[in-house]
Computed example of a mutant assay.
Amino acid sequence: MNANNNTTIGGIYEVCIGVTDAVSAIQYWQQFGYQIGKIGELTATTAYQLYGVNSPLQAIRLHHQNTDHGLIRLMIWQNPTSAGLGVSSMKVKGNRWATTLTADILGILNHAEAAKAIGENILYTQPHWEVIYNKDKKSRPFVEPLVGVREMLLLQPLTRQVLFQRFGYNVPNYGHINDHAPLQTSQFTHVGIVVQDDSKEILKFYEEVLGLLRVRDDVETTYESSLAGREIFELNPEEKFIVTTFDDPRSSQTDFMAVRSGRLYIIRFPENITLKSRFADAQPGSLGMCLYTYKVQKIETYFQRVRESAAKQITEIVSNEFAENSFSFVAPDGYFWTLVESN
């Protein structure tokens, strides 16, 4: 079931967000450079066929400049099934979040502090320094340039975001900042999920069935090695997690300057750590970040691959709220996915 040249998958196409007030959601995401695109709807019958949710649905796709990935789909359910993950721990199975590049992380921190000061339900971290590449290289501060990022967590009832700003380097195809956006941010550059699987067997689905490119495999983050990782994922002393990323196949495994955004980050905790499961609060019907989609060519081929895999709850191919051929499934790790056919 390995990928072949007759099918194509890109980077993460959309982050789907369940909301109750479309106007407020649009106003929020406009600050990050998003603009209204297609608007559509489904009857309860079709929504149940595609998403397993017995509720009428209205949807709004938000675009970010001319990018072909990292978009947003606002999902307004008449009968939401869950309040979603909300402002809850990142250290749970079922967790979803989306990451954005910014040119002004302090400006975003200013907004977070102002929101907290007026009593809004918000949780955030300070922008911690993190070295992403060449971690072992020793540099001399004030003599040699520092190469790394500042990254922060930002949780609100309907959004779960990580934001980062680069210092000392640039990756041309990894995030395109909208300089005219108030918060000077890019489209979503990558998204994440949390799993537990010491065998790594469930990771094979993304590589062998969906045909994604596995990169940065088995990158370890410990309590001691990363202040950002420690705070974002609430690591205790001597705890760790392991990161594997899956890319658009056009990306690169070896040349970080050639990599593309649209990555899927899989945060894998050891099985000897007790993690709660929140899958029911992070699937269609839920408020907040509830679904990721991929855009593919030849959707019938992907449908057959998924049917032959260990995936569950596989729907038929139906027309989604934007009149696109789509089908949904639950991957072997428990996460709900939808594939959308390219026009």
Rank of each mutant, 00 (worst) to 15 (best):
D247K: 12
V243R: 02
G285E: 01
V259N: 10
S186G: 03
P270T: 07
E208N: 11
E234W: 03
L287Q: 06
F279I: 10
E239F: 02
R263E: 13
D198P: 12
V219H: 11
L275Q: 12
T189Y: 05
R263P: 00
I193C: 08
E220Q: 07
D179R: 13
F241W: 11
L291C: 02
D255Q: 02
D198L: 09
N236A: 15
Q184P: 05
T221G: 02
V195W: 02
T185E: 09
T293D: 03
S226I: 07
L235K: 06
F279M: 14
S286C: 15
L213D: 07
R260S: 09
H176I: 14
V243Y: 01
Y174T: 10
I177L: 07
Y206S: 11
F205K: 13
D255Y: 05
T222M: 12
A258H: 05
T189A: 04
E224D: 05
E234K: 12
L227T: 11
F205Q: 10
V259R: 14
T254W: 10
I193P: 06
R260C: 10
T222W: 12
L212V: 11
G285R: 00
F246V: 02
L212N: 11
F205T: 12
P237I: 03
L287W: 00
F246E: 02
T274K: 14
S186M: 08
A181M: 08
S199F: 06
N178Q: 08
S277Q: 14
S277T: 09
V191A: 11
T244D: 12
S252G: 08
I177V: 15
V215N: 07
I242R: 00
V243N: 00
L203E: 02
S261N: 12
T245V: 13
E224I: 05
L275F: 10
D198M: 13
A228K: 01
F241Y: 15
Y174W: 15
L227Q: 03
G262S: 08
G288M: 09
L212T: 12
F269C: 07
S226W: 09
N236P: 00
I273F: 14
S225R: 13
H180M: 01
G285Y: 01
L235W: 04
R268H: 06
F269A: 07
E201V: 04
N178C: 13
A181F: 10
S186D: 07
T222D: 07
I242F: 00
P182V: 09
K204H: 14
P172G: 02
M289C: 13
T254K: 13
K240M: 13
F188L: 04
R263M: 15
S277F: 04
